[in-house]
Amino acid sequence: MLVDGMALLFRAYYATATSGYIRRTKSGIPTNAIYGFIRYFWDAVQKFDPSHVICCWDLGGSTFRGQQFSAYKGNRPEAPDDLVPQFSIILDVMDSMGVPNISAEGYEADDCIGTLATQFSKDMDVMILSGDHDLLQLVSDRTTVIIMKKGHGNYKVYTPQSLYEEKQLHPRQIIDVKALMGDASDNYPGVRGIGEKTAHKLVQEYGSVEGILDHLDQLSKSVRTKIETDLDMLHLSRKLAEIHCSVPVACGLEICELSLDEKTVADKFEELEMKSLCNLLGVVV
């Protein structure tokens, strides 16, 4: 199981922060995101029973996508003050559980996940845990993407078959759809004036961006004009949407086998004043 660490951490933070209550240690260190992260993480481990686990993270700072398009993710607010100190603490917590933390400078967690999924799926089945639908482009016969839905313990599992049943798209076509419609959360526009519905229809009918461009004469004058006007942005948006699967990261199977050292875990949870999580994990204090 490859875990999208940031997706889980942000979800865990906002699940409690919106109520106005932030869990803290006696010394005032905020821990609500860490507590929620472990609950989400362990629920998925129990439900899907992976033999090996790796957690992938964004490093912050510039990425190759930001160099290609300066406004990439430029609309995102700074992380909340109470979340910032929890970024480093959660890495220590995962270390204590024997789960490797993987990241790569200049790349995003998605790229690390894509690279590791490509490597491991040659020999074993891979599960990706996230809330990010961008990762659906990685679905394959040996890679399932588990999307966390609203509500604790609620998941949608995507295989090539279930993805096609729901969206009438093959995994690689997710990239083409995003190239056309853009991505508001990542702050790139795609083709201005083409929304999700039209993007899906075009990709379903013509197969890919190349297929659409080969049949421009068959499109309505309005759609054709929009694509021709924004052709450069269409190609750039496609590059931004595609997850890179050849990032310089690796992790040996023996390192990521899931096996808790109960004392190490118990000591870490006690340090963070989260002893109740020991019961959740079945760890003897």
Rank of each mutant, 00 (worst) to 15 (best):
A33F: 05
Y35G: 05
Y35L: 13
G36F: 01
I38N: 04
I38F: 06
R39A: 04
R39Y: 05
R39V: 14
F41V: 08
F41L: 15
W42K: 03
A44V: 10
V45P: 14
K47Q: 14
K47V: 14
K47E: 10
F48S: 06
D49F: 00
P50K: 01
P50H: 00
S51M: 05
S51A: 06
S51E: 06
V53D: 00
C55P: 07
C55Y: 12
C56R: 12
C56H: 05
C56V: 07
C56Y: 10
C56S: 11
W57R: 10
D58P: 13
L59F: 05
G61R: 10
G61A: 02
S62Q: 14
R65I: 06
R65Y: 08
G66F: 07
F69S: 03
F69C: 09
S70W: 06
S70P: 13
A71P: 12
Y72Q: 08
Y72G: 11
Y72K: 04
K73S: 09
K73L: 03
G74E: 03
N75K: 06
R76Y: 00
P77C: 01
E78D: 14
A79T: 10
D81Y: 10
D81M: 06
D82H: 09
I89K: 09
I89T: 10
L91T: 11
V93D: 03
M94K: 10
M94N: 12
D95E: 12
D95A: 08
D95Q: 13
M97E: 09
M97S: 08
G98P: 12
N101P: 13
N101L: 03
N101W: 02
I102S: 07
I102F: 02
S103P: 08
A104M: 10
G106S: 11
G106C: 11
Y107T: 12
Y107L: 12
A109E: 04
D110E: 09
D111G: 09
C112Y: 03
I113T: 08
G114R: 09
T115V: 02
T118I: 04
T118R: 15
Q119R: 12
F120V: 03
F120P: 10
S121V: 01
S121Y: 02
S121W: 05
K122N: 07
M124L: 05
M124F: 02
D125S: 12
D125E: 14
V126L: 02
M127L: 15
I128V: 15
I128K: 06
I128F: 04
I128W: 04
S130C: 07
S130E: 09
G131M: 03
D132R: 01
H133T: 15
D134H: 14
L136C: 05
L136F: 00
Q137Y: 00
Q137G: 10
L138M: 09
V139G: 04
S140V: 07
D141H: 11
R142M: 00
T143V: 15
T143F: 01
T144P: 06
I146M: 02
I146P: 13
I146L: 07
I147E: 04
I147Y: 01
M148N: 11
K149A: 15
K150P: 08
K150V: 01
G151Q: 03
H152C: 09
N154E: 08
Y155L: 13
K156L: 13
Y158L: 05
Y158A: 04
